[in-house]
Design a protein around this nucleic acid. Structure first.
Length: 677
DNA sequence: CCCGCTGTGATTTTT
DNA sequence: TCACAGCGGG
């Protein structure tokens, strides 16, 4: 047992050793113990402490939002206690936990156990199809709008529309019916159905309640209504004893309201879990006081929040620099030049720097400026491995093999490669499946369909159906080597040849083929440490639990981090540049109509508190947007900052006026030289 | 089947 | 401006 309670400060220790009853840990930015470890540390030590008190590891549940967080926690715990014991603690995302619950008992809700999880692409496709079938002439509904509204409704706990007569309502109802028909669930359903199961089936609820006696939730400010309900169902006891639920979060870092997160969950924690122990973590181990006090000054303008004041023992540090640039190009060049200069002058590494922005579109000029100067950088986000065509195709093969009634996956592969089942034949089958209220696969087998299609098509269908049947039988044989079956099924499908044919360049073909191999090898790796088979692998892929080792590892080299404010939460960098502090960008234009100015302020707060040593914020007077040059005004948040802590720099003046001070002179001269290059 | 034309619309994205 | 989706022509 190597966890060390005395490494924690007083409030941290208080949090880690309070085991019984509701516990609210208000963990301000950077208040975890030790450098760069985050507040996950407190949770982990708390678990280690519980285990030391001889609490059954099987009864401990720690819920996070991301797989990354869950994995980190798992690893850290394994380093503190007996790894065999650590393994028994459940650490999971909300979604993965729900999958577990649903895989056991979803039949009680009328779904089959081998349900498929639809990702957002598949969700979009289905909604789009339903809209075209549902909308009357002249009626219009943006598929993406429908998707987000349906998602919002589900996150509010509605499993059916309030009004089925509106177009949106009927699309919602049909979408939900279609999913059930397909034996598929989307991400929101995982939570919705998980909660429904616990709410409506006391036996299921009791089972999970008895299983988990100690519950912990990280990033509680990001929970939505369903997630709170989930926690309540699991934590509350029928006998009225206080629930052992510990949550960690920071209301000031709630930046996912637009995704359904409810700050009120943490702001009104006492209403959901009465008489909690409340611990405030306010000692920050990350930043200087100049940075922290700037953040404090900003965030105190938010009306609804739990007051707290971060402080740090790291001294005052440099003033925050606020740079005004004539336009966004000069903003980018200034930053690129500075990073190049500071790297050599102050012997820093490129990965000590991060550039934070509100919108991905802002990264372009920055990338160009960095590239011109041969400064390495990495961008987080972008298109994922999971969204690559060949990956989705191969996964669709797997999904169909396990659940042939999954129409969306079946449609994806029915003519990939071409197997003589024409568009019109598919159309006929689809019509029949709607008429009969059965799956596409069942429609394909129907004698009625055979009458409406050409003999050739009928043959092609019969062959395809037989092939799927064979695969399904094989993959479900007990003790079979599923990896081998999967590999041979892809070989047999002729997919590789089709893939090569559809690629323009041999280079692309090679890349895509390796994508296919990655999926199979991924399953191989998965199968070696899991007994959940192909189904489990598909779940893991849908929940993005498998690492995208491919591209990520290659860019693993050090470089300046280019990252959105949202994606930067939880990270820290010695030197940060926060760009585009302008009205319309931060706060974003749309936040005004949406009434989410508080959240924009929090977003800036998150950005500021990423910085460890120095922080430079920039804004422009002109910016290229939508084609033309648009004049900009500085963000209204700037005047909320403490002028005492800020050094204002006018880029234009600085570049045009000679400076007297010798030290400064050489410095600016050097910069000018760089800029003029 | 694939290319190029045109129109549209343009945050943030843990699962 | 630029990325993309949807569609009509070769």
């Amino acid at each position: 047992m190597s966890f060390r309670l005395f490494d924690l400060n007083d409030p941290q220790r208080h949090a880690a050793t309070t085991i019984d009853g509701p516990l609210l840990i208000l963990a301000g930015a950077g208040t975890g113990a030790g450098a760069g470890t985050g507040k996950t540390r407190v949770i982990t030590v708390r678990i280690a402490y519980m285990l030391a008190q001889k609490i059954d590891p099987n009864s401990i549940l720690a819920v996070t939002f991301t797989n990354k967080a869950a994995n980190e926690m798992r690893e850290r715990l394994a380093g503190m206690v007996d790894p065999e014991v650590a393994k028994k603690v459940t650490m999971s995302t909300f979604h993965a936990l729900c999958v577990r619950i649903l895989r056991t008992d979803i039949e009680k809700l009328g779904y089959k156990k081998n349900f498929t999880i639809y990702d957002e692409g598949e969700q979009s496709g289905l909604i789009k199809k339903i809209i075209t079938k549902t909308a009357a002439i002249g009626e219009k509904l943006e598929p993406n709008l429908a998707k987000s509204l349906i998602s919002k409704a589900k996150n509010n706990g509605w499993s059916a529309p309030q009004d089925e007569k509106t177009l949106l309502g009927s699309v919602f109802a049909r979408y939900q019916a279609a999913l059930k028909q397909l034996n598929a669930v989307d991400f929101d359903d995982l939570l919705l159905l998980g909660v429904k199961l616990l709410a409506e089936h006391p036996d299921v609820r009791e089972r999970w309640r008895n299983r988990f006696r100690y519950i912990m939730v990280d990033e509680f400010q990001d929970t939505n209504r369903l997630q709170l309900e989930m926690v309540s169902y699991l934590a509350n006891r029928d006998d009225g004893t206080a629930p052992n639920v510990a949550v960690v979060g920071d209301d000031d870092q709630s930046i996912y309201g637009w995704r359904g997160a409810e700050v009120s969950n943490i702001l009104e924690f006492e209403a959901h879990f009465p008489d909690p122990t409340v611990v405030k973590l306010e000692q920050n181990y990350r930043s200087t006081n100049a940075i922290l006090n700037t953040a404090n000054a900003l965030i105190k303008n938010n009306p609804r929040r739990r007051p707290k004041k971060l402080w740090s023992g790291k001294g005052d540090g440099d003033k925050i620099r606020l740079v005004q640039a004539p336009d966004d190009r000069q903003e980018a060049e200034f930053i690129a030049n500075e990073i190049a200069r500071r790297k050599s002058d102050e012997t820093l590494q490129f990965d000590h720097f991060a550039i934070l922005f509100r919108m991905n579109a802002q990264s372009r000029l920055l990338e160009e400026a960095l590239r011109e100067r041969q400064i390495p950088y990495k961008i987080v986000g972008g298109k994922s491995f999971f969204d690559r065509r060949e990956v989705k195709d191969v996964l669709a093969y797997a999904a169909c093999t396990l659940n042939a009634d999954d129409d969306v996956s079946l449609l994806r592969i029915i003519n990939t490669p071409p197997r003589g089942i024409s568009e019109t034949t598919v159309e006929r089958a689809l019509e029949l499946s709607i008429k009969r209220n059965c799956s596409l696969f069942q429609a394909l087998q129907s004698p009625e369909l055979r009458k409406t299609v050409t003999p050739r098509a009928a043959n092609a269908i019969a062959e395809f159906v037989a092939q799927l049947d064979r695969w399904e039988t094989k993959i479900n044989e007990p003790l079979v080597d599923q990896v081998a079956v999967f590999r041979s099924l892809i070989d047999e499908s002729g997919y590789y040849a089709d893939l090569r044919r559809s690629c323009k360049t041999p280079d692309e073909a090679l890349k895509r083929e390796s994508g296919v191999r990655d999926v199979i090898e991924g399953f191989d790796r998965f199968a070696q440490h899991s007994s959940e088979g192909l189904r489990g692998y598909l779940d893991a892929m849908a929940l993005r639990q498998e690492k995208e080792d491919d591209d990520k590892d290659k860019e693993q080299g050090s470089g300046v981090m280019l990252i959105t404010l949202h994606a930067s939460k939880g990270l820290e960098f010695p030197h940060c540049y926060l760009v585009g502090l302008e009205e319309g960008i931060l706060p974003h234009d749309r936040s005004k109509v949406e009434g989410s100015m508080d959240e924009e302020r929090r977003l800036l707060y998150v950005g500021i508190t990423r910085a460890q040593k120095t922080l430079t914020m920039t804004y422009c007077f002109n910016r290229f947007r939508y084609g033309g040059v648009v004049p900009c005004t500085p963000s209204c948040f700037i005047k909320e900052l403490d002028p005492e802590l800020i050094e204002r720099i006018d880029l234009k003046k600085m570049l045009n006026t000679p400076v007297e001070a010798p030290a400064a002179k050489s410095r600016f001269a050097a910069m000018r030289a760089l800029l003029e290059k």
